[in-house]
């Protein structure tokens, strides 16, 4: 097992006025899961569901409010930035916006060399070798791209650089936060394929954060569904797509169209409304206000039930 997350919560304080009460945005609450070495996970949720916060908390870009994160058997929940040095080398991050994720006044070479310099890896020549190799690995010719500036590259090329930067220290875990959502459809597939290739080759674990359920099936072993800060369902990919158990997952699957001309003749059966505010979320199950099968029981937070091997659902009525 590579990563173990136990009852993890992350709240952001917001203060209203100087003497006002402090409120909390309960972005992630009580999340528990484990990830094996070399496993790829899709973490799916709408914007504001807490999926990005969860990813960044795992990377310790945020300090957890409560709960525990174990990486490779070591508790990293409360390590200081100094103590985290080794952890930074074992993890990588790919961000959503390829145009904003590169220092604009650095060349591609410098951008990729930075993590190595910061972590004191290799001599000048060795670093050069590493950077050139990694560029080749993401299918960018070093001769052509190493000394270009980010603004000279297309979104797809930049995202390859971002992937290269994330894996340059050969980490065990890469978190990719919506890595293709800003790219054109034709480029998306390329980048997703590249991810898959690299993951297999280096036997890395990947957490792929996305709002787009339809891309997940192509390369994730398991899918986690988040709603309003809660992890509501997690299951192997095929199982989840075939037998969604949580009413929210069902709604999500219903909402996504496949290209089909008969779509225009039918209405989609999706719940009305929108996700609740995370400052003052509903008691118990957070999907309750929109849920077609909710009862009074749902005012209590449902436990996570394993309805079939590896298929966990946080719902009172899951079968």
């Amino acid at each position: 097992m590579l990563l173990k997350v136990e009852n993890l919560s992350k709240f952001f304080p917001i203060k209203k006025g100087i003497f006002g009460k402090t409120y909390y945005v309960r972005a992630v609450e009580n999340v528990t899961f484990e990830i094996d070495k070399g496993e790829s996970i899709s973490l799916v949720g709408e914007s504001g569901s807490g999926k990005t916060t969860l990813g960044k908390t795992i990377l310790r870009l945020y300090d957890p409010t409560s709960g525990k994160i174990e990486f490779d058997g070591k508790d990293i929940t409360h390590l200081t930035e100094k103590e985290l040095k080794w952890y930074r080398r074992e993890t990588g991050l790919v961000q959503q916006n390829p145009f904003g994720s590169m220092v604009p006044h650095f060349t591609i070479f410098k951008i990729l060399e930075e993590p190595l310099i910061v972590n004191k890896i290799g001599t000048r020549e060795e670093r050069r070798e590493i950077v050139y190799n990694i560029l080749r690995e993401v299918q960018l010719s070093p001769e052509e791209f190493a000394f270009k500036y980010p603004h000279m590259l297309s979104g797809g090329q930049l995202q390859r650089v971002a992937i290269a930067r994330a894996i340059i220290m050969n980490p065990k875990l890469v978190i990719a936060d919506e890595p293709v959502s800003m790219l054109d459809a034709s480029v998306r597939v390329e980048i997703l394929n590249l991810f898959e290739e690299i993951q297999e080759k280096h036997h890395m674990s990947i957490i792929y954060i996305t709002h787009d359920l339809s891309t997940t099936r192509y390369f994730s072993d398991r899918i986690f569904i988040m709603y309003a800060g809660h992890l509501v369902e997690r299951a192997p990919t095929k199982e989840l797509l075939r037998n969604p158990a949580h009413p929210y997952t069902k709604a999500l699957l219903e909402a996504i169209p496949d290209p089909d001309p008969s779509n225009r003749f039918k209405f989609r059966e999706v719940p009305p409304g929108e996700p609740p505010s995370l400052v003052n979320p509903p008691k118990g199950c957070r999907f309750k206000p929109r849920c077609p099968i909710a009862t009074d029981k749902c005012d209590e937070e449902p436990p996570e039930v394993e309805i079939s091997p590896g298929h966990f659902v946080k719902c009172w009525y899951a079968q």
């Binding site: 870009l61 930074r88 991050l93 961000q95 959503q96 904003g100 994720s101 220092v103 910061v118 972590n119």
Partner: peptide
């Protein structure tokens, strides 16, 4: 708030850097 600052933190760059 630019992503590249966050990326730098993720690979361990110091605040001064």
């Amino acid at each position: 708030s630019y992503p590249y600052v966050e990326a730098a933190k993720a690979y361990g760059a110091s605040n001064m850097r």
